[in-house]
């Protein structure tokens, strides 16, 4: 079970090896004084803590869903896992080895192991390259394509992503939204990753195309035994795809549980509020009954539990003290003071 609180024990007993990737207390902040500001020239931008102290692990073949609203840090988290951003604190481990300790060829190999699928297929590709070159570029540079076999290599990965290899000499703007997203996935697969990080990968697509892409991702998972992290604001997609779900609010993990457990026994008040909004068509009309209040700004987070200004059960303690992420059932973690009352 991918439970962070057992992490230290796992590492000491050597069983941490079973995690493909593991995040240990990862934080990332942006802004703060720059080079000139440190010399006393002007004021720096304010510090934003996008992700704070996040820990979890993913096993081989597991799909982890990350759900949260804007400003919860899910995109920053995705970019750290994909190696695009470095954490400002904490550690990311690949098969037990800290990513920051891997250098040179080993570091590059580790970087290729997690590939990202982006939200917006319109800006995720260099508009001046043809589709085949978009897929072939990275594997060619990294020597993954045997000499003289580039066409076959590209065609293979086009087909994996359900694209007709004949589309290879098109430019991205000559493809439809669904085809572009398939091309983004083909590009990611071409460097033979162990893990896909999908950041709102279907949010920009039409409903019917969205279903096609989701089906393809599920097929790929079976075919290639891919581990993946699926980030979305859409709980319906998360529920359908994930084995385990992490709920984030303002940079922190508020709940982490297996998908069935989370949807049947949500613990955190925020998770429960989100589940009310689960996109579903089931005959009966559900009224709109959302939690009140605005999403807090990461620039100016509320003290204590970040959710307390919107929480219907907020107590005095919630205003003062941030709750820790603690187990509430086997494999189910939640960060809420209410659990101490029971």
């Amino acid at each position: 079970m991918a439970i962070p609180e057992h992490r230290d024990a796992d590492i000491s007993s050597g069983s941490a090896e079973q995690f493909v990737i593991e995040l240990c207390g990862v934080s990332r902040s942006f802004g703060g004084p720059g080079a000139l500001e440190r010399l006393g020239l002007g004021r720096g931008s304010p510090v934003i803590h996008a992700v704070r102290d996040v820990s979890f692990g993913l096993r081989q073949g597991e799909v982890l869903g990350i759900v949260g609203e804007s400003g919860c840090g899910k995109s920053t988290l995705a970019r750290m896992v994909a190696g695009i951003l470095k954490p400002t604190a904490g550690e990311i481990r690949w098969h037990g080895k800290p990513l920051s300790s891997l250098r040179g060829r080993e570091g590059k190999a580790a970087r290729l192991k997690a590939q990202m699928v982006f939200q917006n297929p319109w800006s995720a590709m260099n508009p001046r390259l043809r589709a085949a070159e978009i897929v072939a570029e990275a594997p060619r540079i990294h020597g993954l394509i045997p000499r003289g076999e580039q066409d076959a290599y590209v065609a293979h990965h086009f087909l994996l992503a359900g694209l007709d290899p004949a589309l290879g000499d098109r430019y991205p703007h000559q493809l439809s939204g669904g085809q572009r997203q398939r091309l983004v996935i083909a590009r990611a697969l071409a460097v033979v990753p162990e893990m896909l990080v999908c950041d709102e990968a279907v949010a920009a697509l039409d409903v019917s195309i969205q279903a096609q892409i989701l089906n393809m991702l599920m097929d790929l998972r079976e075919k290639l035994d891919l581990t993946s992290m699926f980030i979305s604001h859409d709980l319906g997609v998360i529920e359908h795809l994930s084995d385990r779900v992490v709920v984030m609010y303002l940079g922190r993990v508020v709940e982490n549980a297996e998908v069935a457990e989370l949807f049947e026994r949500p613990n955190h008040p925020y998770t429960r509020a989100l589940l009310e909004e689960l996109p579903r068509i089931d005959g009966e009309r559900r009224p709109f009954a959302a939690i009140e209040g605005e999403l807090p700004s990461p620039l100016n987070p509320p003290p204590g539990c970040a959710f307390h200004p919107r929480c219907p059960f907020a107590m005095e303690r919630c205003r003062r003290e941030a709750p820790a992420l603690l187990p509430v059932a086997s494999g189910h973690l939640s960060a809420c003071h209410l659990n101490d009352m029971a």
Binding site: R79, A82, G83, I84, K108, R111, L112, A114, Q115, M116, F118, Q119, N120, S123, A124, M125, N126, P127, R128, E137, A138, I141, H142, V184, R187, V191
Partner: peptide, 26 residues
């Protein structure tokens, strides 16, 4: 700030290539 540059970083494409092959032409 566009995602294709992030993708290039993620694909471990060397910096000079990102700058001259991806950034410059655009």
């Amino acid at each position: 700030s566009k995602e294709y540059i992030e993708a290039a970083i993620c694909l471990a494409i060397p910096v000079h290539r990102i700058v001259y092959r991806h950034l410059l032409p655009n």
